[in-house]
Design a protein around this nucleic acid. Sequence first.
DNA 1: CTGAGGGCTGTTTTT
DNA 2: CAGCCCTCAG
Length: 803
Amino acid sequence: MARQALPPFDERSNNPWCDGLNAQQTEAVLHRDGPLLVVAGPGSGKTRVVTYRIAQLLSAGVRPSQILALTFTNKAADEMKRRVATLVPEAAVTIGTFHRFCVLLLRRYARLVGLTETFSIFDADDTLQLCREILKQNPKYSLSTTPSELLHRISHVKSKGILASEFSSRHADQGDFVLEALYPEYQQNLLRCNAADFDDLLLHVATILRSSPDLRRDLDSRYRYIMVDEYQDTNVVQYAIVRALSVDHPNLAATGDPDQSIYGWRGADIRNILEFEKDYPSAKVVRLEQNYRSTPNILKVADGLIAHNRFRKPKLLFTETSAGAPVSLTVFQDHFAEADGVSERIIQTLHAGASAREFAILYRASHQSRILEQSLRRRGIPYQIVRGTSFFQRKEVKDVLAYLQLIQNERHDLCFLRILNIPRRGLGHVAQRRLQNFAEQQVLSLLAASGDTELHRQLSKPAAKSMARMHDWIRNLQSTPSQGVGPLVRRIVEESGYLDQLRGSNVPEEVERAENLEELIGDAVEFDLQHPDGGLDGFLERIALINDVDAWDPTSERVTLMTLHAAKGLEFPRVFVVGIEHDLLPHRRSQDDEMQLEEERRLLFVGITRAEQELYLSFARQRMQNGSMRTTIASQFLLEIPRESVLCHDASVSVGPADRESFEEELWDGHDEICLDHDGDGDEECAEDDSALDTYVPIVRPAPPRDTEPPRTKIEPAARLDPPSLSGPDRAIQEAELRLGSTVVHPDYGPGKLIRITGQPPRRSVTVQFALAGSAQTFIWELSPLRPSRAANVAEPPDPRRG
DNA sequence: CTGAGGGCTGTTTTT
DNA sequence: CAGCCCTCAG
């Protein structure tokens, strides 16, 4: 397979796909065969490059069906589709999220992993419910974990690509008995319900690709040109999938930005992008560093902040736009005042002629939206919120969806349990327990068991009658030929009596629920119109995989509220980032681990770089936490942004007018050495290095000098808070043993090698490459359960009989 | 079997 | 503070 040479220069300039592109963008667009990595800073025209390249490939004769573009969010996929459609109308290129693409494959090859093609997708609620059930049935573990923790840990393990079968054998001797017992049980339950959770969608596909070489080869050849967006956010499972599809035809184009990696908590492995060149030695690497989005001031703030990440390769970001307004940094008295301050600022700007759609308010945690909403509503500012609970999460809607899922997949026992007594039919705890026991004994699905006359004999007369009736009714729904989803939803809602029950209530809340059910019918009818061949599967899949970000309408004349995570990939003329406080951003749960702390910093970096013209940063001196007002601490990140690019305002009342101008000093005073620290050893970090990405990480520098002087100021910068000191006899041992390459043991992950050590004794951050799990993790040594090991060879698991 | 009320817990980000 | 689970009375 000859690699195509680049076209001569004049051909480039004549190429319609290169109009208005800079040299690097052009290079990426014209790249045809072979692996390509585009490292793209924020606002550098990445999406443009990807879509132009697709157009370029098509015009060079590549068939649309051979192109596959994978994104993380539906929003990104839709945007890409839209832009490709503008360039090349009606090109049937496959563009979608990883999850959706995997569902597509899995529907076809479900049998290979023990599912049928009508398998259900369990959402967060379902999986949590399942974990509850599992703990209920395994009471001996219910003290050592909670359902949500169990769920979280299973998901974590899955995102590392570890199957239930592998987990038990790998970890049998490692002491994680809870997961060892319950992960396989969880998985069996999914299988019994003919269901997959979100992680499974990926994991099953990866498994299929690994275990079916012929199929892998076919798919590899079918998808000749693969593009992966946000490659820094791929986890090992996604990596395995992409890798498997680009063996024979390694025309893989990955785009991403390590500085925008914000999904580490979900198992994203930044090494995927860092080691791209190792995986594909012939890869071409293109860097897009010119920013077309933000003003220099905004960019300076972003750059100054992200420069504080130590595990990073510095990157040049530049722009040619004019300076623009300084970035605003405001402290408010409390979160109410902050919300009001933001609203007032919006009002003023609206009066000056701005339009509401230009604004975005970004925050760390979704619950922060509530106060903001109230404030905006009071002033009549139109807003749209990208929030966690959607229409489809409402109880009554989920109830009806449960009927639909049960009809689609009669083994969906969770759905059956959910609707057993909805609407009320006199089937309570007793009937439920007998049903479950019976189904267990006879190895039947709950639906099948509910129709069994043997079970009916075990129930009270009214219960038996009610259950038989319900069973027959659902069977009838199942066997009725499909007239579309709309009529089906209507039948369920009406024939079950659910709608009547709600309508007849005098509780206003229930009447509203009835209205929601009407709306659901409407939604289903509309779905039928828009997707004549969609069917029940399509309807349910859309609900399972689409979230609220997709309902976000960028053209609507409203202020956008969303989390920092949801904001990735978007841009707005005017951006507010609120609540930049210690324990919130960085989040409390991210502070013990340097890697997680860096991820929080990247999160703020992402937020900052959404702004085109105006950026407003703020925090509150007090905030409601667990029902009580607490005094907050300014985020350490605020100390890290370049002082000369921001304009500080003190809008809080705790400081008298005389002190107002000193707010800036209050924040920064005595911290210049922290802010400036990284300029000292600049030549190494700023050294040009065009080739290898692997030098991105790690640049291990000495930790910033820690001040011994007590802070003089009222706002306590978190960076100065002393870490808890280590006490006890372990200390000497721990310090002596801590060396690169030495072996340590973790109670859960087993033995591993120290591959990175940073920081100073009270709080050293160590990264351990685990031999058994095959993955690396970073810990604060002093706080972790890691212990030095005498074993020289980590390849061999320690023998428990000896230990 | 149902509904109300008390106690407990947990508390980020998302496909 | 909120949401969930369990208990208890009807």
